[in-house]
Every structure is written in C-alpha cells, then in structure tokens.
Design a protein around this nucleic acid. Structure first.
Length: 470
DNA sequence: GTGGGGGAG
DNA sequence: CGTTCTCCCCCAC
C-alpha cells in the first residue's frame, strides 16, 4: 500500500561561497522538500502531476514554477542579494522576462509600461490584445528606465480606479519583491457566473431565450457548487438496503446563500465611419437582491429559471438597455454573488474539516427551512417568501461533469522580498531525489527512529541531519 | 451595496 | 497559438 516516497537530495551548486546555516538556504531547502512531498502525494493519491516553483514569495515562486513543466519543480537559488557589484539571481531571473509576463502586470499596465519605455506615449500602438506584443519590453528595460521608481510609476500607471500605491506595488514586482499573502482555499466560491457570447443578439425575444438558457445553467451550477449533497453518505450508510436508502429523505442543504443577482452585457461597439469596428471588452451590469425562491428545492430548475428570468433578469435588462432597439450584444453574463456562508466558523481552521462544521447550520437555515409542505413554520418575521423543504428521492439532472482542478499549495516561509540591483546565469535548480525509508505512522506522519518524534515525511531528511550533526 | 476596471488561468 | 469563459480583487460613489 505504501509507495516509496522519495526524499530530496539537492544537487546544489551555488555561485557564491555557501554557508550551510544561511537561513535563506535552509528555508529554500525546506520548501523544496515540502514541494516534493506534496507533489508525490498528489500523484500517488490522485494521479495528477504538477509543477512547482520554490522561492521566497509568490511572485518568484510562480514565475520560477513555469520552468520545468509538466512535472518537475524548480528552486530559484541564492544569492538573492549581493553586496559587491555582481548581479543577484533574483534580478537576473526577472530581467529576462517581458513586462507583461509578470503576474499582476496585465494587458493595460504592460501597455503603459511599454509606452513609457519606448517613449511613444499617445501613439496608437495597437498592441495585440492577445499574444505577445509587437515590441517586447523587458523587465530590465523598465527597471533601468531613467528616473523610474515607485513614485514615477505611480504617476505613469494611475487612472481612475487604480489601487493606491500601484506604483510601489509594480516597482516591487519588477524588483522581485512581493508581500502578498498566500490565501486559504475557500469551500465555496465568492461568485458563480454563466456567460455566453453572440455573433448577433439584438431583439428582446432572443435575449429572453438566452437568459432562460443561462439561468438554467446558473441554477444548476448553484446546486452543484452550493448544495451540500449527503446522498453518498446516506447511500453508504444503508449500503445493504438500497431500496430503503433511496426512499430515505436526502438532506441537501445550502452551504451558502448568494444575496445578489447580476446581469452583465457587453454591447457591441458601433461600427466606425470606415466600416471597421473597435474592439471593446467593456461590460455594463445591473444587480438586484436575490429572490428567495431560487433556493427552493421543490420546484424544478426549469420553472425556477423561468421565474428568475421574468421576475429578475428581464427587469434588470430593461434597466441596462432602456432602448427598445438599437443595441447588439456580443456577450451576456448572469451571476450570483455576495455569498453568505451557511456555516461560518469563526477563528482558525477555516476551509478544512468541513465535516463537523454544521452543528450551527440549523440555526442559520431555520428561517428558510420548512419541514414539509403542509406545516409552514409560524411566527417567522423574515421577508423570505419562499420555502425550502427537505427533499425526497429523485435527483433532477444535476451533477454535470465538473472537472476537479488540482490545486497545489504554495508555501510562504517568510518574506525576503529584497529589492536588488545588478548578471550571471545558472540560478535555476532542478531538484533531484533519492529515496529513503521511514517508519510510517499514518498517511502523513512518520516517526523518527532515534527520538520517536513524529513529523511529516518531508521534514525527515532535515531531522536526520539534525541528529547527525556534532 | 452598486457598477466598473484590471487581472489570472 | 488565440479565444472564450469563469473567477478574483480593488476602487469610487
């Protein structure tokens, strides 16, 4: 059952005299051990391979993680800073990247940066929207542009709506510095949306049809993503009596309630005098409170979708497009947002071990819950006009295949984030591994032969060396 | 809370 | 590779 998990043996060849107790080196080493552990576990448990980058912050880890796809890991090795005039590896690694390749620098910001470096401010650059720009501008060119720094960048990059301090942020990225936090995975998304694009959509009739299609799809997504389906558990529980299990009430509960619905469209830009058409991705939207009937588990998705279109989306559409005619939509999007967690646990431990988090759920749900059709709950002063009920048996047509995207944890050991000055090569390290043998306690824990300490496997190499020293 | 901008994958 | 679809965060109002 246990597959041999290899333990890393780093083939490190640093370009500077290496101090084995350098905290940076130790942390990178630990990071690469951990990455190896996670990758190995992901592959043996789930069959997915993945690529990982190891460095001191998200920016650098992510960038260096592009290096050895599809199933290797890469560590950006020291030196991260230099005191003499030589170039550190962070700088030389970053400098070769086109500005737009830096995570956080998207199409708009990259365009402004290129324009500044190339001195072609108001030029109708006509950068390609997708793909690589006509004229590549490297990070080194931006970093070395005369007079450029956080403050100058702030002025260059600001436009209505840009976050404050964007200059400092981008300057940081260009210098390998990134203090953004690693976020915890959420149990439910913040928003669910369905959209489609159209060659031509210019009558209310067509719009109504499309809204219905989109609404059905949205409702199904809500069921798939926001509904706690204990079907499997119940079936397993009554494994020996499938008939009984099937007739048992299936308890489906909403994990979260979106409070807002939103309708967005992308109007097709009017054609120019010369007959061409401007490319525009601008969207406009209107939103409204979520009507509570959508949480009903008794009505069919089809009937709910119709109600949703008539009662919510069409009115929103009229707010969005008051003119009866003259518009043509290239895209329509329907969304639900403002999720309110049904089981919101305070304190730590969010996101994991969802299993026993639902003690409170009855309280949260009470206002929406009706135990069966005939017995409405009295004395409710909530404005919710619709009911949910526990549902029996049948299974609608939910559960369309949704792919489970493997997610890999990123580790942040601390922020080094040192802006750096000056060139060299060979700063990437391909990790290599050999195997050792350990005492397995369970899937994740191992016991040290020497001191009986229990730890995850990725820590054992370092632990053994700790025993071996002096 | 609403509507828009920018970005990632 | 370019395009589409989905999701995220931030901002001003």
């Amino acid at each position: 059952m246990r597959k041999p998990i290899s333990v890393p043996a780093l083939a490190v060849s640093y370009h500077t005299p290496s101090n084995p107790t350098d905290p940076l080196r130790l942390r990178l080493l630990l990071g690469s051990h951990f990455a190896q552990h996670v990758r190995g576990k992901l592959e043996t448990d789930k069959g997915f391979t993945c690529t990982v980058g190891i460095s001191t912050n998200k920016l650098l880890s992510k960038l260096v993680g592009n290096s050895h796809k599809p199933k290797d890991q890469t560590t950006l090795v020291p030196p991260y800073t230099t005191s003499d005039g030589t170039t550190d590896n962070v700088t030389s690694f970053l400098d070769g990247h086109e500005v737009g390749k830096i995570p956080g620098i998207g199409f708009k910001l990259a365009h402004k940066l290129r324009a500044h470096v190339l001195q072609r401010r108001a030029d109708s650059d006509a950068d390609l929207v997708y793909g690589s720009p006509k004229e590549n501008v490297l990070v080194s060119q931006v970093r070395q542009a005369p007079g450029l720094g956080a403050d100058a960048l702030e002025k260059i990059l600001v436009s209505p709506g840009t976050p404050h301090g964007i200059g400092a942020k981008i300057w940081g990225l260009l210098n390998g510095s990134d203090d953004s936090e690693v976020g915890r995975a959420r149990d439910v998304p913040r928003q669910i949306s369905i959209e489609d694009s159209y060659m031509r959509l210019d009558t209310l009739d067509q719009v109504t049809k499309e809204l219905l299609v989109l609404s059905k799809s949205l409702l199904k997504r809500m069921h798939a993503d926001l509904l706690d389906d204990e079907d499997d558990v119940i079936k397993a529980y009554a494994f020996d009596d499938v008939e009984a299990a099937a007739s048992k009430p299936i308890s489906k509960r909403w994990l979260a309630f979106p409070k807002t619905v939103r309708l967005s469209t992308r109007p097709r830009p009017p054609l120019n005098p010369d007959g061409s058409r401007n490319r525009s991705f601008a969207r406009i939207s209107r939103s409204a409170p979520m009507p509570n009937f959508v949480f009903s588990l008794k009505e069919t998705v089809d009937s709910l979708a119709k109600r949703l279109v008539v009662e919510t989306f069409l009115p929103l559409f009229k707010k969005l497009h008051p003119e009866k005619t003259g518009w043509d939509l290239s895209l329509v999007n329907v969304a639900v947002t403002n999720m309110v967690d049904a089981a919101s646990e305070k304190g730590g431990g969010v996101g994991r071990d969802i299993g026993k988090m639902f003690k409170r759920q009855d309280d949260v749900l009470r206002q929406w819950t009706v135990y069966d059709t005939s017995v409405p709950i009295s004395g409710q002063k909530s404005e919710h006009d619709t009911e949910m009920a526990e549902r029996v048996g049948d299974e609608g047509e939910l559960g369309g295949a949704r792919s489970a995207t493997p997610k890999v944890a990123e580790v942040k050991m601390g922020s080094e984030d040192i802006p750096t000055p000056s060139q060299e090569e060979g700063f990437l390290l391909e990790d290599r591994w050999e195997s050792e043998d350990e005492d397995m306690i369970d899937d994740d824990s191992y016991r040290c032969d020497e001191c009986d300490a229990i730890m995850p496997i990725f820590a054992m190499g370092a632990h053994a060396r700790w025993h071996a020293q002096d």
